[in-house]
């Protein structure tokens, strides 16, 4: 697909529009630079979250997921999304309903009650997929060449998350998901280095309904990840999923609190969504990328300060 034909329906999910809107801001801003057109999906709902709702009733999950997909089918474009959880849901709902006649029939029986029909006419794309496979790291690298006077030169701890890469059979990443490198390739721009840290591919702990029902358990995962990331001396954590982002951002504060007797010192590693990093490398301002912090609002992200990384690259927050 030629890059001037990149047009998608942007699926927002829950966490991005309702808790972490700057992820949408940054992604839209960077997408525009690459002439990616992102349409609104009016009336979209929760994907529905695979970790919880799929675990309660698979059929309901298929039906609600299918409804979201029909919104994009009616627009006649593929879905682009920014969340691993939404990706896990919509990609698998789409795949299941495209191949299982019985399930499709069942789903369409329910959808008929609201006048909708799942047709199986579109694909589901994570923005990492779009940036890697449609745009390509080379093109991104070229765009960053003259983007900033001084390269970023950051040491980054990437977090792929889980649903981006697994189960691998219906995802576009090839055969090896034990040691993937595609996300690293996307962010090793402007002098940035993607660090190898212990248990890099481990889950953040938020998913599967764990953060919801057993917060401390989820935070123990996060504590372990933060310890490993800190040991690698990372300047920032880079995410591609808002739930992982939340877990590392708000979760970092919670870990510092709950596990204060277990950890040697409080963690203060900034967390960035990958489009924010790409934007910075291209010379965009922190404000354009949602890296500015509201002086008035309390109890909103970023919970873990991003100032340190902005300072490191010579920006004023």
């Amino acid at each position: 697909m030629a890059s001037n034909e990149l047009k998608f329906a942007l699926f927002l999910g829950c966490v991005i529009p309702n808790r972490y809107p700057f992820i949408e801001r940054a992604t839209r801003a960077v997408a525009e630079k690459f002439k990616i057109e992102l349409l609104d999906m009016k009336g979209a709902s929760c994907c529905p979250a695979p970790g919880v709702f799929r675990g309660f009733d698979i059929d309901t999950w298929l039906v609600i997921g299918a409804r979201n997909i029909t919104i994009a089918e009616e627009l006649g474009v593929d879905i682009a999304l920014m969340c691993n959880g939404c990706y896990g849901s919509l990609l698998e709902v789409n795949h299941t309903l495209k191949h299982d006649k019985e399930k499709r029939r069942m789903v369409n029986e329910h959808l008929a009650k609201i006048g909708k029909e799942f047709k199986g006419s579109i694909e589901i794309r994570h923005v990492v997929d779009i940036f890697y496979n449609d745009i390509g790291p080379e093109k991104i690298k070229n765009r960053t060449k003259y983007g900033r006077k001084i390269p970023l030169n950051l040491n980054l701890a990437l977090h792929y998350g889980c649903h981006l890469t697994k189960p691998k059979d219906i995802r576009p990443w090839g055969n090896d998901v034990e040691n993937p490198t595609f996300f690293d390739e996307l962010v090793e721009i402007s002098g940035c280095k993607s660090l190898d840290y212990k248990d890099k591919n481990m889950c953040c702990g938020a998913g599967g309904g764990v953060r919801g029902a057993f917060k401390e358990l989820s935070l123990d995962y996060t504590r372990e990840k933060l310890e490993n990331i800190a040991a690698a001396n990372a300047d920032a954590i880079i995410t591609c999923c808002p739930f992982c982002h939340l877990q590392f951002d708000l979760g970092q504060v919670e870990v510092n609190n709950i596990f204060k007797d277990k950890i040697s010192a409080p963690f203060k590693i900034p967390v960035l969504y990958f489009t924010q990093l790409i934007g910075l490398a291209m010379g965009m301002t922190p404000e354009e990328l949602g890296l500015n912090v509201s002086p008035d609002l309390k109890g909103v992200p970023p919970f873990t300060a991003v100032k340190p990384v902005l300072k490191k690259i010579g920006e004023n927050a």
Partner: peptide, 12 residues
Amino acid sequence: LWFCSTCYTCLE
């Protein structure tokens, strides 16, 4: 049963 975070490593 609810302690699993559905990371899919086992399945893979």
